[in-house]
Design a protein around this nucleic acid. Sequence first.
DNA 1: TACCAGGTAAAAA
DNA 2: TTTTTACATGGT
Length: 275
Amino acid sequence: MILVSLLPVPQPYDFSLSTERFRAFGVDRANLWHEGGLHRMISGRGVRIEAAPGGVEVNPLDEAIAAEARTLLGLSFDLHGFSEWAWADPVLARLATALLGFRPPLAPDSFEALVTSITAQQVSLQSAFAIRSRFVERFGVPGELAYSFPTRERVAAAREDQLYAIGFSHRKAEYVVGLARCDLDLDALDGLPDDQVVERIVSIRGLGEWTADWYLARHLGRPHAWPAGDLALRKAVRTFYGRVEDVRAFGASFHPFQNLSAQYLLAGLRLTPPQ
DNA sequence: TACCAGGTAAAAA
DNA sequence: TTTTTACATGGT
C-alpha cells in the first residue's frame, strides 16, 4: 500500500527539540542524526524522518514503518493531558512552557533498549554513546546511513572478548552476551503490569532496578515509570525542588504522569537556563 | 593526574 | 544485614 509520507503528530510538536537526545551525547549509529533528519533501519530499509507541517515526513513509508516511527517518536504519550495537569506544579508548568512541543522518543526494540541501558550503566552518556556506536558498527548491519542495531541472534553468537575489545568492561560484555542468550521472551513483557515487568527484568544478570525502570519509561512508555535511582534524574530533582529525602517516594507526587515528568525534568536540566 | 559520569554484583564488614 | 569495592571509557 502506498501512503503519503506525512505522519501526523498531535500538535504542538517540536521535532528538533524532541530529537535532541539523539545529538546531545554523541553519535548513535542506529538512530543517526544527519542533515536535519533522523535515520534508522526499519524492516530492513533505511528510513529518514524529518520535520513537516502537522507532523513529520517519513521516507520511505508503509504500515510497518509507520508503526515503528510512531513508537520511536513517542506518539503514545498523553502530552495534552500532561500539559493541563502540569499547571498545578510551578516547576513543571515552567518546563512545559519552555519545552513546548517536546515529546520524548522511545526505543522501539526491546533488545536494543536493554543493551543501550547496559552500555550506559555507571558511565557518562558520552562514553556510553561512543562504546555503543562501536558495538553497532561491529555487530550491526550497515545501511546507507544508519546501521540496523545488532540482532539478539548475532550477539548470542558473539564472544565476550569481542565486546571487551571495543571498550566494554568484562562484566558488561558478560551481561550483554548473557542477555542475548537467556531464555526470556522480551516481547512478551509488554502485556504485563509494571511491577511484573520489573520482576522479570531484574531476574536477568546485569539488569537491575535502574535498567528495569528505564525499560518501562523508554521502551514501553509506561506513564507511571519513574527511574528513581538515575543519577541525572536525582540531580534534576535536587535542582528544581531542592533536597529530597526519598526520590522514589517523591515520584508518587507526579502521579499519574511520572514518566513524562521525569523526561521533562531531565530535558529541563540540559535545555533550560538555571533559575 | 585524578575524578566523575543517567549501575551492578560480589566481597567484606 | 549493610557497606565497600571493581569495573572501562571519555571529558574536564
